[in-house]
C-alpha cells in the first residue's frame, strides 16, 4: 500500500471522522458525496463515539498475510453510540468470551504494516469495555 493511500485516510482511521446527512440525518463512515437514502449532498462533519456494542463477531483463524503473527484474532461489527457502524478487530480479549450486545470501547492501535521496511498502519480497534 502506498503512503498516500494510508495518509489520506488518517482523519477517519485516527479520529473516526464521519459525516451526517443534512437532509435525513443518516450517519456515514467514511463520509460520502451523496446520501444513498435521501440524495442530499449536504453533510455535517462529525466524529463517531468511542463507545459501542457488538452486533456480530467472528474469530479469524485463517488470516491474510498481514495478520499471520496475531492469529487467531477477533473481528466485530460494532454499532457506535449516536450512530455509525465499523468493522474492527477486537483487541485485548479472550475471543471465546465475546458476546453479541457486549459493550466495547474504540482504541488506537497498530493495524498492520507494509512489510519489515515499510510504513506502519495505525487505526481503530475495539476492546471490551
Amino acid at each position: 500500500m502506498t503512503v498516500a493511500r494510508i495518509w489520506r485516510e488518517r482523519g477517519r482511521r485516527y479520529r473516526l471522522e464521519a459525516a451526517r446527512c443534512k437532509g435525513c440525518g443518516k450517519v456515514f463512515f467514511p463520509g460520502r458525496l451523496v446520501c444513498d437514502k435521501c440524495g442530499s449532498r449536504e453533510f455535517e462533519e462529525i466524529r463517531l463515539s468511542d463507545k459501542g456494542k457488538i452486533l456480530t463477531y467472528t474469530v479469524i483463524r485463517v488470516p491474510p498475510p498481514a495478520h499471520t503473527y496475531e492469529t487467531p484474532y477477533a473481528v466485530a461489527i460494532v454499532e457506535l453510540e449516536g450512530g455509525g457502524r465499523i468493522t474492527a478487530m477486537v483487541a485485548d480479549c479472550d475471543p471465546e468470551k465475546l458476546e453479541i450486545g457486549q459493550n466495547v470501547r474504540v482504541v488506537f492501535r497498530k493495524i498492520s504494516q507494509d512489510g519489515e521496511k515499510g510504513i506502519k498502519f495505525y487505526g481503530y480497534k475495539v476492546v471490551p469495555a
Binding site: V107, F108, R109, K110, Y122
Partner: peptide, 16 residues
C-alpha cells in the same frame, strides 16, 4: 505490549 501496541499507541491512550 500486545502485537498491536507500541510507543505511539500507548502515548495516544495516555494523552486521550
Amino acid at each position: 505490549p500486545g502485537p498491536d501496541q507500541d510507543t505511539i499507541t500507548i502515548s495516544v491512550e495516555a494523552a486521550r
